[in-house]
Simulated scan of single mutants.
Amino acid sequence: MAWVAGAGMLIGLLAIALGIMTLCTGWILPTARRHVTRPQLHGLGALATGASLLMQGLFYFRILPSASWEVRFFGGNALLFTGLLLIATSQLLSPRRSPDHTDPSGA
């Protein structure tokens, strides 16, 4: 069971690194680049998802002081679903239009 928690922590660290990179530079993985219209939301979602995965592993290995199982379960799930919702929102919202561009209809 320890390898599952360790793999989750590794994926969580990778998601946190990608979220920080997206927030700092705007860079997104090439596989998601076509779909993401709001990189900041995508970066925040990656941070929340990665933090959820990392915290579950830290609780499992008793690195963080243990809270009750309800707090760990519902808190971790709330953080995970918040991150996934932010990632989905970053792909579903229409792209922002900059005020520099003129109206293509010429009006």
Rank of each mutant, 00 (worst) to 15 (best):
G8I: 08
L10K: 07
L10I: 15
I11W: 07
I11N: 09
I11L: 15
L13C: 15
L13P: 09
L14A: 14
I16V: 15
G19K: 05
I20H: 00
G26T: 13
I28Q: 01
L29A: 14
L29H: 05
T31H: 01
R34Y: 08
R38M: 10
Q40S: 11
H42R: 08
G43F: 04
L44W: 15
L44C: 15
L44P: 00
G45M: 05
T49C: 06
T49D: 03
G50I: 11
S52V: 04
S52R: 02
L53W: 04
L54E: 07
M55T: 10
M55K: 02
G57M: 02
F59E: 06
F59D: 06
F59W: 03
F61K: 02
I63Y: 05
L64G: 01
P65R: 02
S66N: 01
S68N: 12
S68A: 07
W69F: 06
E70M: 00
G75Y: 00
L80E: 09
G83Q: 06
L84N: 10
L84Y: 05
L84V: 13
L85S: 14
L85E: 03
L86A: 15
L86S: 13
L86H: 10
I87F: 02
A88W: 06
T89Q: 05
S90P: 09
R96E: 14
R97T: 15
R97W: 13
S98L: 12
P99Y: 04
P99C: 07
H101D: 11
T102F: 13
